[in-house]
Amino acid sequence: MAREQRLTEVFVELADTLVEGFDVVDFLQVLTERCVELVDTDAAGLMLDDQRGNLRVIAYTDESARLLELFELQRQEGPCLDCFASGAVIANVDLGAAGGRWPVFTEAARGLGFSTSHALPMRLRRKVIGALNLFTVEPTPLSDGQLAVAQGLADIATIGLLHARAHEDQVVLSEQLQTALHSRIVIEQAKGVLSARSGVDVAEAFRLMRTHARRTGEPLTEVANAIIEGSLGAGAMQRVAGSGIG
């Protein structure tokens, strides 16, 4: 079946990424995108514990997912935070009926057009390091099989982060996350630079960056760095994006 083949391809792709010195943000960005594709959802976002008492949004497929994640963090309310705190899966949340439990979050999510949300823990044994959130527009629940795939992807991310190098977990994790948070900032700065140089909004700038990264096979962080350093111009990116190469 084509779907199973695609699933295998994605797991191989992700496993291939987990080499020494891999780019955490890029890896998690690809993971959220593949998750949306494989699990039939519309948006995904991923939060990580920065090991210093804060959850931080580290990857998301589109603005609406990022806004919702930030919203949860700001209001300290939502299924993702509960999932992170408990380490338990909170799937198939009917946003039309969950207003009693998460009044602010459900209103915001519905306002963005979503009907259902899912939160999966990033957990290894008792250690929870973050959570993966999925959002769907249609009110169709995810099957156990789909949830298993999503959890599998979350597990790959967790293992990738925790076992990137074979010594003390928490030190490596702090170091990884520290680097990942800065990579995330580089991407945001590059969006601004590209947006100002080419006269598009930041969402369009991000789309151009992702398209360019995909077509050239460069990690998103590298693309962002090249934009900031000025070695990758808006013209070159648009030409590549428009030419259909790759």
Binding site: L70, K191, G192, V193, S195, A196, V202
Partner: peptide, 15 residues
């Protein structure tokens, strides 16, 4: 730490 601040930083640096 908000993304908007980092995006705006990029815009201001160009302008």
């Amino acid at each position: 730490e908000r993304a908007e601040v980092h995006q705006a930083t990029g815009i201001v640096s160009v302008h």
